[in-house]
Nucleic acid binder design. Sequence first.
DNA 1: TTAAAAATACGAAATGTTTCGTAGACCACT
DNA 2: AGTGGTCTACGAAACATTTCGTATTTTTAA
Lengths: 129, 129
Amino acid sequence: MITYKPTDSELEILQIIWQDGPSSVRAINDILNQRREVGYTTTLKLMQIMNEKGIVERDTAAKSHIYRANAREYDTKNSLLTDFVNTTFQGSAMSLVMQALGNNQASQSELNELKDLISQIENQQPNGK
Amino acid sequence: MITYKPTDSELEILQIIWQDGPSSVRAINDILNQRREVGYTTTLKLMQIMNEKGIVERDTAAKSHIYRANAREYDTKNSLLTDFVNTTFQGSAMSLVMQALGNNQASQSELNELKDLISQIENQQPNGK
DNA sequence: TTAAAAATACGAAATGTTTCGTAGACCACT
DNA sequence: AGTGGTCTACGAAACATTTCGTATTTTTAA
């Protein structure tokens, strides 16, 4: 699966689209402006570039174009995650997991969820690696 | 703790320094060239800039300067991790952990290590969040 | 049917990163 | 003293990202 790696700015827009569904530039710019001041044409330009790159596609039928994400949220995050593990944790997903877990207070229910996942993995490959 | 956020190129150099200890430009460039072709002055310039930014410090006593990392490996990775969780997983370290774990085949000993960490966390705060 | 409002297209400045050529300094030999 | 090798310093090109001004097109509504 080929997922173009978005920049942080692009990812921020993608997150909005994943959350709200296909959106107009106006809608996205409004949300961005709840966080910080961004010019409308700045957002427009960014989204046009994302379109050129193939990160988003747009429906130009209506007056205001509607942009939708071209890749699934999960896939994109997975690609970013792999990349991050490679550059920052030298390919070791486990050391990332340990450090992420060690530095954040997880609730008991989250820990339970995690333990479930672990036993699920253990059952898939019951005899170790 | 103030850790300047390195770029990917800068991080690659930092990893070498963390691994090998304080190093000359020559030593680092040699290692980089085992991976891909990089001009000596390219590496030099990068490290000079890292020095200006305060990412590394250098000992200029000898002919060839010796560079050392200014921040600890753990702290730097933690800062990058926090940043990554915020931009990509909207602040949820747990969803990062779950996705990282779900997509990589962990060995039984790694899983055991992880389970140890979990029970350690559970003992620290035995009554949930 | 016009005038205002809202949208897109385009280009370019500002900024940051990466890459490397060239020049000059400093040694170590011969 | 002169030559070659190694190093640092400097500047600038190439590239990508971010930001936004201006022009143009489209829509709406009076």
